[in-house]
Amino acid sequence: MNALDVDRLSIQFHTDRGVLQAVDRVSFSVAAGRTLAIVGESGCGKSATALAILGLLADNAEVLGGIRLAGAPLTPEAQRSARGRELAMIFQEPMTSLNPAFTVGEQVAEALRLHEGLSPRDAMARAIAMLERVRIPDAARRAKQYAHQLSGGMRQRVMIAIALACKPKLLIADEPTTALDVTVQAQILALLDELKRETGTAVVLITHDLGVVQDHADDVVVMYAGRVAEKASAAKLFAMPQHPYTIGLLGAAPRLDSKRARLASIEGTVPDLRNPPPGCRFAPRCPFAIAACEITPPLVELAPGHFAACIRAPLDVVLAA
């Protein structure tokens, strides 16, 4: 049984300027102990997808489709009781997620008291053990400090300790290291990998960085303008990317090993989702687009477990022509 199943999830936002289709029939599953990355640029719907799983979307959002946590449907009531228990989350900016009025130790202990019914004394002892486990040096002293006394990396470690205190089935990490320096980012991602291996928690990692995906994900969903462009294991996606958007994105990231004459650049900008183009939403920016791209492409399984939503895929045919 999967830790998470998302089945044809659609999200619409009702705004003053019309209806915005942020997510359109997105499906994926995550097994226990696996990391699924959802990767894409601003406005692709990756964060809205995460918030829908958590039940934290704003009131103007309308959600369709099914979400199941360990097989059980995640209704709004189920989300409320699961959040902070079976369903944990960490966000980009730990400062806004931590309470400035309580010590970090109290906040980890609170999670344990609420969900495990521990006495205050036992909860604090466990909280200090959790802080040690996320490699906070001198944890007993740090537990008595407030969020503003900690560095960004330390704060994110505290968030991870809170998230994992109750042994969740699923951890949603939305750009968890985007606000951190690169050497600290590496530490936090390595810590998440290690804790996932130890606890068997399933992880949904939301990121814009294909490098992070390559190093830390088992499976990948590439999103563009609210839809799944490509879905595969990380190994397959990087070995044989199929969707033009994935291919362009890989070529747009500069490399350390050599200077390229020019970077691949995807012309234009992402479409306005209040008024998306008909058919394939990537077609207006796609060098491989043809007239038939005006019809919405289905997500097709090109190789076992490797899906792409492109009528031109596999593009190897285009190369051969």
């Binding site: 980012q185 590496a186 530490q187 991602l189 190093d215 090993d257």
Partner: peptide, 21 residues
């Protein structure tokens, strides 16, 4: 060396820096 090693997807074998700046 640590900065280069920490670049996701492209760094060398990761020898993580301890602690914060």
């Amino acid at each position: 060396r640590a900065l280069l090693a920490a670049v996701p997807g492209q760094g060398g074998a990761l020898k993580l820096l301890e602690g914060d700046i």
